[in-house]
């Protein structure tokens, strides 16, 4: 048994890649829920964006256009969610569930009619994909890496070698913190999630603030989805979001609706997903062969365990989930 193997630099590098869509979705949920709008639909927005990004990137040959298309699709779903939960004061959970099913169905229908490959896009490559950025002096060949010392390995496998969206996601954390805690918009946004009536009394539009928050969430989910299909993998396959939107929500609760803690929580979930991809390392580390099915279920089981056991008292924004009705 050698538990240090579990900290292998290649696993930690994969951790960052797996955590990126979770982190972006978690920050999306952060903005939305801090403004008082529950968003179960993170999953669907990521999925639609993943499809549109891959499909448009393949068709246009330019991954940036694909990214924009993904964000546009995600924003459209955000708009529907806003219409249902803000304008028409409907049930936010049900609206989110509807959005998830819509994305799950429409992506396959559209992919089939567009490409005819059984609900997937063709493989994308070259300029239609976000390639890893190799930092100066970083090693890429496996043979070189095996002989390298630890600091070189950390530099080459953990810091270097990710697609640009990974670095954008990491920069989004301090940015989200700054917006939420150091700007007037952020103060109002947090206030509207706690006590919308007070914000309304101050003469600020609750509806506009909440729409602003879910549009930010839409952009972030769009980037997350595009990352899945154009960087993490080379194309869209059905249901490729695989519950990441829900795991991001669990991470958000774990982080108690705070940005830096969201980074920590999503890195933890990313690590579990990275580990689940490496049964060989787990076997060497704990000396027992673990069944594939258990490894597949591991991130989901740990989501349940963390939600149930280690969160402590997580108090959501007070007005979360409640539509705001102006006093007459």
């Amino acid at each position: 048994m050698d538990f240090l193997l579990l900290l292998d630099t290649s696993v930690l590098g994969t951790t960052i890649r797996m955590a990126t869509p979770l982190l972006l979705a978690c920050l999306a949920g952060l903005f939305s829920e801090r403004a008082g709008i529950f968003d179960i639909g993170l999953e669907g927005k990521m999925l639609l964006s993943a499809f549109l990004a891959a499909a448009v990137a393949y068709t246009s040959g330019n991954v940036w256009i694909g990214l924009l298309a993904g964000i546009a699709g995600s924003l459209m779903l955000s708009g529907i969610h806003g219409l249902a939960s803000i304008t028409f004061r409907g049930n936010q959970l049900i609206s989110g569930v509807a959005i998830n099913f819509f994305a799950s169905g429409i992506t396959v229908v559209a992919a089939q009619s567009w490409f005819g490959q059984g609900g997937r896009t063709p493989q994308i490559s070259g300029a239609a994909r976000f390639d890893p950025i190799i930092w100066p002096g970083a090693l890429t060949r496996i043979r070189d890496l095996l002989q390298a010392n630890l600091s070189t390995k950390i530099y080459s496998q953990i810091i270097s070698g990710h697609a640009i969206i990974v670095y954008i996601a990491l920069l989004a954390v301090p940015l989200a913190w700054w917006i939420l805690y150091r700007t007037r918009f952020g103060l109002r946004l947090r206030a509207v999630g706690e006590n919308p009536a007070a914000v309304d009394t101050a003469g600020i539009s609750v509806i506009r603030l909440r729409f602003g928050a879910i549009m930010i969430a839409g952009v972030l989910c769009g980037i997350a989805g595009a990352y899945m299909s154009t960087a993490l993998q080379a194309g869209f396959v059905r249901e490729m979001s695989a519950g990441r939107g829900y795991i991001a929500l669990a991470a958000l609760i774990f982080a108690k609706w705070r940005p830096w803690q969201a980074l920590g929580a999503t890195l933890l979930f990313g690590y579990l997903q990275a580990l689940a991809l490496r049964p060989d390392i787990i076997e060497k580390a704990i000396g027992v062969k673990v069944q594939v099915q258990l490894l597949d279920a591991l991130p989901y089981i740990l989501t349940v365990v963390i939600l149930a056991g280690f969160v402590g008292k997580a108090i959501p924004p007070r007005a979360g989930g409640e539509p705001y009705v102006k006093e007459r």
Binding site: I80, L83, A84, S85, T87, F88, R89, G90, N91, Q92, I94, S95, V97, A98, I99, N100, F101, F102, S104, G105
Partner: peptide
């Protein structure tokens, strides 16, 4: 999904 949306979330509309 559309039935869920219209009967559930967009009921008021």
């Amino acid at each position: 999904s559309l039935v869920i949306l219209f009967t559930g979330a967009l009921d008021h509309m």
